[in-house]
Write a protein that binds this DNA or RNA. Structure first.
Lengths: 297, 297
DNA sequence: TATTCCAATTGGAAGTTCCGATCGAACTGA
DNA sequence: TCAGTTCGATCGGAACTTCCAATTGGAATA
């Protein structure tokens, strides 16, 4: 079944409104013969006569009268469609679906969400907290737009933007022998019982990697499902832990019995950044987002 | 403001549904490059990206997801528009606006309406009863589609279809001296007081015209606004009247004190027929209507 | 009678849409 | 690892639409 053209509908509406081919043509910014042809085409397509024309005037048929409101609605809808869609061109229009890992979310998001809403009031944020592997999966499926995570992990084919280096601190309980030291070195942890997060946390893998460098061994006896839990175990004297700097302030509040110890200049670190599909074409937006996150630090 | 074409919408919908340019192209009966071009155009028109394409797959953007339902609705509405309008092509679709003169309506319409509904159930009839002059005006304005009337009157530029010749009878009161005659002649009315309808009735003009031929004179003392009233006056002995044959049966029922007298072979008559705008293009329908009216006689 | 206005038509220019062929990248199976 | 397949993008030219300027002829106007 053949479909009428939008131009045919426009011409029809113009003629119906003016009842004058010449004026209607002007309204459509085409010549009168072109308009005549469009109307003729439209009539042939529908198999009916839309206007009775004699030499002195133009009269809409019953069919034209009944069609006109519908045609007008279609044209209006189409116009609105085009106008509405322009909004999508602006940065952060619509919903931004953000994936974040659990060892970043609590420390960066609260401030970020607030300033994002301040700078781009139109944004609607949808946040998903999960492990790197599942986030990357969702990203590739198109269920998420952008990830905020440690870039050391395997991110598949995603493109990335660096935001900041997040150095690791050593956290010991305040009664620990290392607690009085001003500064520590890699090798100091070689003899310690290093507590780890559950499988799946990239922080676990990074900690293990660092342990390997100094032939230290992570503890297999306990696995915490979150950093607060992990630090409870440290405070309880079960072992020590590596903690990203961004988490120090909120996790090692005074009186919790924890002492955070910075490494020197050669501190191990993780790189926090954004990841997104190479095909997404929204990199300008993600750069804006990265800028905003950097400013938050 | 530029408008998207229907083809762009179709292509967009097809790609959105299949997420595969090749299949979508097949669905639209065009080649894949042509489809690619349509999508590209549409994206440029809207100023946004609709699909993320990489070498292995196609992913709709948030904008595409939000646009799709609207696009689908527009396409559906457009299709329905085209389909619906085909109904207008069938004879007597929609409303047939019929004008009838008062000296025809009561005698022809009841039967006609019934059989019209029987043969063309889809017809919706709108009837307007008025004098010839106003009917012709309405016809020319496009407020009526077709008239059923006596074709002797001035019908402007309307085209006409003859339906039947409607001979005049002479009607006298049963005590009148002519009432016993089997047959009468023109000249018999020359001495009579001939009663007339109001101004505007074409039957009045026709009667006067016949009077002129025999130098009879119409009465100016009484004017009836309808045939039943006129015949009451005849029955009351105020004069005689010419009555169209189609009205005889219902107006001169036995016991009403009226005697209808037929003229011979050379009876005067009026011609009943249809009139419509030359530009209307519905002559085939009006021919059907005329056939139906002839069969009713 | 001359002028104006109208829609239709014509012929040719301008613009579009389309297709086939091809490309390069990325999977698939041998 | 290598041929075969599949994907969307691109290109050049063919086919087709759409358009305009000029004109026609009928009707209304003056």
């Amino acid at each position: 079944m053949e479909m009428p053209t939008n131009r045919q509908l426009e011409c029809f509406a113009a003629v119906f409104e003016t009842l004058n081919f010449r004026q209607a043509a002007e309204k459509c910014y085409i010549s009168q013969p072109a308009l005549s042809a469009q109307i003729k085409q439209f009539e042939q397509l529908l198999g009916i006569l839309l206007f009775e024309r004699d030499k002195r005037r133009v009269l809409p048929t019953a069919a034209a009268k009944s069609l006109f409101p519908k045609v007008e609605k279609i044209l209006r809808d189409t116009r609105i469609l085009a106008e509405d869609s322009h909004r999508f061109g602006e940065p952060f229009s619509g919903t931004l679906r953000l994936g974040v890992i659990p060892t970043v979310a609590p420390y960066l998001l609260p401030k970020t969400i607030r300033s994002l809403h301040r700078e781009f009031p139109q944004v609607r944020l949808s946040i998903c907290e999960d492990h790197t592997e599942r986030l990357v999966e969702s990203l590739e499926e198109g269920d998420l737009d952008v990830l905020l995570l440690a870039l050391e992990a395997d991110l598949g084919s995603a493109e990335t933007i660096d935001i900041l280096s997040d150095p690791f601190w050593l956290v010991v309980d305040s009664k620990h022998s290392l607690a009085k030291r001003q500064r520590i070195a890699f090798e100091d942890i070689a003899q310690e019982n290093i507590l780890l997060l559950d499988d799946g946390h990239c922080l676990r893998d990074q900690t293990l990697e660092i342990c390997n460098r100094v032939t230290a061994k992570g503890s297999d006896d306990f696995r915490a499902s979150s950093l607060p839990t992990l630090l409870e175990m440290v405070a309880g004297g079960l072992g020590v832990s590596l903690l990203p700097e961004m988490a120090i302030e909120s996790e090692c509040r005074p009186g919790r019995g924890l002492t955070p110890l910075p490494y020197g200049d050669i501190s191990p670190f993780r790189t926090i950044g954004l990841a997104f599909r190479a095909s997404s074409h929204r990199q300008p937006e993600y750069n804006l987002l990265a800028d905003l996150l950097r400013r938050e630090m």
